[in-house]
């Protein structure tokens, strides 16, 4: 494989992980909760592309529409599902001052609920669906072949990260979100509306999940009720190695994880490749042993009380 191909692969996977890690990190910031349902919301968005049915042949539903409708519909559906989850599963717990563990369990419940409903409606057999068939082409750049979808994934990731970071940096809602991520009760003392901040965090997180649904299906063409689980784990690990509660760190952590996986896949001897994830997660353990606060947090950063 040429270095350029390798770089494109690595950045495309890393970009996807970065979007997932940011989606999880945004919610962690304001709720101090890891939303394990994030991966299943990605699955939910992917399944919205086909008509609900137990038949093996998937009939495109949203997936049959033109991109102008397909993209906003999928994003809207995942955002709504994410916000509904917050409303039904998390807000009542927050009102009762539930601790982080209850919220975490609740997020597992939401995730399993989504998986079970999909399993019930669509059966457990993977389905195939094709969206944006034009993107599966390969580009030939200076006699190097790279797949168009990977290039698009990288560009979409960059654009989306810029949009989200600009929103956080320059809007009032973004300022409220950053403040609440640092010290939620202090933000409340200043009159910042908790529900509004959490709504915004879940909304953006849902948007990011929806984008990953589309990118993932466009690349693989496969639907599977458990497809979101490894994605959520990758995103979660990304936020941890980036330093929990640090959004730029989450992005960097996700990117790092995707790049490390791709490089190991390419560089490990043939016989060891099936054990790639063992190497990746072994590396994660080593990183956390050396830097428990995350890769991108200064080792001697003062603990805030």
């Amino acid at each position: 494989m040429s270095p350029i191909q390798l770089a494109v692969d690595a950045l495309s996977l890393g970009g996807q992980f970065a979007l997932i890690a940011l989606g999880i990190g945004l919610i962690f910031g304001v709720m101090r909760m890891i939303n394990f349902a994030h991966g299943d919301l990605i699955t939910f968005g992917a399944y919205a592309l086909v008509v609900p049915s137990a038949a093996d042949m998937a009939v495109p539903f949203v997936g049959a529409w033109s991109a102008w409708f397909l993209i906003p519909s999928t994003l809207g559906i995942v955002m709504l599902a994410t916000l509904a989850g917050e409303r039904v599963a998390f807000r009542p717990l927050r009102r009762r001052h539930a601790d982080g563990t209850s919220l975490l369990i609740s997020s597992f419940a939401v995730g399993y609920l989504i998986q079970s409903v999909i399993l019930f409606v669509h059966t457990g057999r993977p389905k195939s669906v094709s969206i944006f068939p034009g993107l599966t082409r390969h580009l030939e750049i200076a006699s190097v072949r790279v797949s168009l979808i990977d290039v698009v994934t990288i560009l979409v990731t960059i654009a989306l990260l810029l949009v989200v970071l600009t929103f956080l940096r320059f809007t009032r809602a973004g300022l409220h979100l950053r403040a609440a991520s640092e010290d939620f009760s202090m933000a409340k003392l200043l009159g910042v509306r908790a529900d509004r901040v959490i709504f915004v965090a879940f909304g953006i997180s849902g948007l990011l999940a929806g984008v990953v649904s589309l990118l993932y299906v466009a690349k693989t063409g496969v639907l599977d009720s458990r497809m979101g689980v490894p994605l959520a784990i990758a995103g979660f690990v990304g936020t941890v190695i980036g330093g929990m509660g640090n959004l730029a760190g989450a992005v960097a952590g996700g990117l790092f994880l995707g790049i490390a996986s791709t490089l190991l896949q390419a560089l490990l001897p043939e016989a060891l490749r099936p054990a790639r994830d063992a190497f990746v997660y072994g590396l994660v353990i080593v990183i956390l042993l050396v830097r428990p606060g995350g890769l991108f947090v200064p080792r001697n950063a003062a603990v805030r009380i």
């Binding site: 950053r178 403040a179 640092e182 202090m186 805030r304 009380i305």
Partner: peptide
């Protein structure tokens, strides 16, 4: 108590 300014802002 402790001021609790937002240090990252």
């Amino acid at each position: 108590e402790g001021r609790r300014i937002f240090s990252r802002l």
